[in-house]
Amino acid sequence: MIEYDSLLRAPRAIEELRELRTHRSLLRELVSRNLKVRYKRSAFGFLWTMVSPTLMLVALSLVFSRTFTSITPAYPAYVFPGLLLWNFFAQSTTIAGEEMAAADVWKRVRFPKTALAISTLLTGLVNLMLALLPLILVLLLVGRPLGAALFTLPLTIVLASLFVLGVSLILATGALYFPDVMPAWGMLLPPLMFSAPVVYPASILPRWLAPWLRANPMTLYIEAFRAPLYSNAIPAATTFAAMFATALLMLTAGWLLFTHFADDIAYRA
């Protein structure tokens, strides 16, 4: 017999975890919905999500290949991993924030509300996985050494995902209360991308500016994602420790913030 007492509720952050467990199949159905809705009525399907990073890859390669040739030979292999991980971050957070702010399902049915953010993240992950195929094709074409370091990729992707989920939950909470949060986020993303070494090698920056790259947490994840792909290098243990700490901090903050306001959301929608 299921019993519920509004005076004896667990802390919201814990209650949310329990409800995700009782609604296990919801995540799967939501991811399947997202993929179907996005790809069902388009002839190119998944290829559409590859259009923007591929165009960026071509443009950047044409412009910068010669400039950076001494520091980063085979420039397309340097820039592509960074673009894909950045795209994963930018798209997942934007879609989660916009979808959750616009949703009215909050006041229609009882369900664990973080499921919308988690399913958006998982959808982004599916796209990232699919994008690994063209990525590896490019790497082979320009003759990069692929090897054992690739086994660190799953861990990096998992840690980056936790970080993305934390950011998504913070954005969604803000966007539910202030309509200008998502437009502001859209404007912030391009400068944020250029404050991480996505399109250029970190070593071209003047000495005084280099430490500031570290202020952008995405720098960590992008470098750790790129190292095994670009140069078959295993990121340092300290890098993994820093990625773990950043992800844990962001996810805890996002989870506590969002679940704190979760009760109020049905009243606002």
């Binding site: 017999m1 299921i2 019993e3 519920y4 007492d5 509004s6 005076l7 919905r33 179907k36 809705v37 069902k40 009525r41 399902v105 006041k107 229609r108 049915v109 009882r110 369900f111």
Partner: peptide, 22 residues
């Protein structure tokens, strides 16, 4: 205070969770 003993199903809102493209 609200107390509930038993599982609940609802026919309160018909559109909750439905998606037009599916």
């Amino acid at each position: 205070r609200l107390r509930i003993r038993g599982s609940v199903s609802t026919i309160i809102d018909l559109l909750g969770g439905f998606h037009p493209e599916l």
